[in-house]
Amino acid sequence: MAQRRFRVISPGAAELQPVLTGLFAEYRQRYGDYFSGHTEEDPPERYTAPEGLFLVLEDAGEIIATGAYKPYRGHTAEIKRIWTDKTLRGQGIARSLVSELERYAIDAGYREMYLTTGFRQPEAVALYLSLGYQPGFDIHRDFEEYSRAPYDGRLRFTKTLVAPACYANKGANAHV
């Protein structure tokens, strides 16, 4: 059985580009051109240390999941690019990836995470709720309602980061 491992990667790495192309194609399939006017292009350096991070999970050298964060505001980082290979979904991979991103963010000095997901991603909503993210929207409404004015189709979440108890003995390395 192959060993899975997390690896920090440059957001511009050639091996990452087909994965990101697939992720954006999946978004287009799900939403059509709904978000076409909402996209912002982030320079790759926003996802590099010390303020940002791009992480992949590999299995036998193949990228099976991705996730990233970038600075959002103050001590808050924004999670982006959460993706898991379609054939491996439902196995807790995204959960472990988000948890790993949170650990890195704590080490980088962040105290809160922010993220958005689209109104047609109920599985993502369930994931973030299960990880303790607080919704900035009514979870009991039909999510399609958030695609119409005055909304912009994005479902917002936040989470206060809490360093593990083992950080208490690290003194200056404890960032929260």
Rank of each mutant, 00 (worst) to 15 (best):
R154E: 12
I9A: 04
F119G: 03
E102H: 07
S99T: 04
R111G: 08
Q121E: 13
R5N: 12
F24I: 00
P18L: 08
Y31S: 05
E112W: 08
G74M: 14
P11D: 07
E62P: 01
I64K: 11
R89G: 09
G74D: 15
G52I: 10
L53Q: 13
I63E: 08
G90T: 06
D138T: 06
T116Q: 15
M113Q: 10
K86P: 13
Q29V: 03
H38K: 15
A25I: 09
A65H: 04
L127Y: 14
I63K: 03
T66L: 06
Y104R: 14
H75V: 12
L161M: 06
F6L: 10
A13I: 04
A65D: 02
V125M: 05
V176A: 10
A13Y: 03
L115F: 10
Y47N: 00
E58L: 11
Y31Q: 06
S147M: 02
A163I: 00
Y146Q: 01
G90E: 13
Y27Q: 02
P44V: 05
M113G: 06
T160G: 13
H175Y: 08
L97P: 08
P135F: 03
Q91D: 14
Y151P: 00
R89I: 12
T21A: 13
L88C: 06
L53I: 07
L20P: 01
E102T: 01
Y104E: 13
A165H: 13
Y31W: 12
Y128P: 09
E45H: 13
P44F: 02
Y72Q: 05
E40Q: 11
P71C: 02
V56D: 05
F119Q: 05
G109S: 11
G171A: 14
E62K: 10
E78Y: 06
A108P: 01
R89C: 11
K86W: 09
Q91I: 09
T39E: 14
Y47F: 15
Y34N: 04
V125T: 01
Y151Q: 00
P11S: 05
A108I: 00
A60H: 14
T84D: 03
L101Y: 06
S99F: 07
M1L: 07
G153A: 02
R30M: 05
H140Q: 12
P135A: 03
T21D: 02
